[in-house]
Computed example of a mutant assay.
Amino acid sequence: MSRLTDLIARAKARDSALGEELEREFKALASRRAFGLNFERHRPESVELPGRPVRRGDKVRILPLRGSVQRPDQRLWRVKRIDGKGEARMALVELIDAEAPERVDVAVADLVVVAEFRDFIYPGLVSTGRVSRGGDKPFHTVINGENFHVLEALTYTHRGKIDAIYIDPPYNSGATDWKYNNAYVEKDDLYRHSKWLAMIERRLIVAKSLLKSENSVLMVTIDAREYLRLGLLLEQIFPEARIQMISTVINPKGVSVVGGFRRADEYIFVVMLGDAAPSRLPLSAEWSPSSIVSGSHRVDESDVTGQETEKMSRAEPGWTSMMRRGSEAARSDRISMFYPIYADPQTRKIVEIGDPVPEGEETAPGKEG
Results as ranks from 00 to 15, higher is better:
260 G>H: 07
277 A>C: 07
233 L>G: 07
269 F>D: 08
301 E>N: 11
304 V>P: 01
214 E>P: 00
264 A>R: 10
251 N>K: 09
205 I>C: 10
216 S>M: 02
287 W>F: 07
260 G>K: 10
297 H>Q: 06
225 R>H: 12
253 K>S: 11
226 E>V: 15
229 R>Y: 04
275 D>G: 05
246 I>N: 04
277 A>T: 12
273 L>E: 05
272 M>Q: 15
231 G>P: 01
287 W>I: 14
224 A>T: 09
234 L>C: 12
202 R>C: 00
298 R>A: 15
259 G>H: 10
240 E>T: 14
262 R>F: 07
219 M>S: 08
293 V>F: 07
195 K>A: 00
309 T>H: 02
195 K>L: 10
279 S>A: 06
234 L>P: 15
307 Q>N: 03
195 K>I: 10
272 M>V: 00
242 R>T: 09
282 P>H: 04
288 S>C: 04
209 S>L: 04
296 S>F: 06
280 R>N: 03
241 A>N: 07
247 S>C: 10
307 Q>S: 10
279 S>L: 12
222 I>L: 05
229 R>G: 11
256 S>T: 10
196 W>F: 08
287 W>T: 11
259 G>K: 05
238 F>L: 11
216 S>T: 08
253 K>D: 09
280 R>Q: 13
196 W>R: 02
271 V>R: 01
289 P>F: 02
199 M>S: 11
222 I>C: 09
222 I>S: 11
275 D>R: 13
228 L>H: 03
225 R>S: 11
229 R>K: 13
300 D>H: 07
220 V>W: 00
227 Y>S: 15
198 A>E: 07
251 N>D: 09
190 L>Q: 03
210 L>A: 06
192 R>P: 10
304 V>S: 06
306 G>Q: 06
226 E>G: 06
288 S>Q: 08
203 R>S: 10
199 M>Q: 10
198 A>N: 07
267 Y>H: 14
246 I>S: 04
198 A>K: 00
277 A>P: 00
263 R>G: 04
281 L>H: 06
210 L>Y: 12
193 H>M: 09
260 G>R: 06
221 T>D: 01
280 R>K: 15
266 E>Y: 04
207 A>L: 05
289 P>W: 03
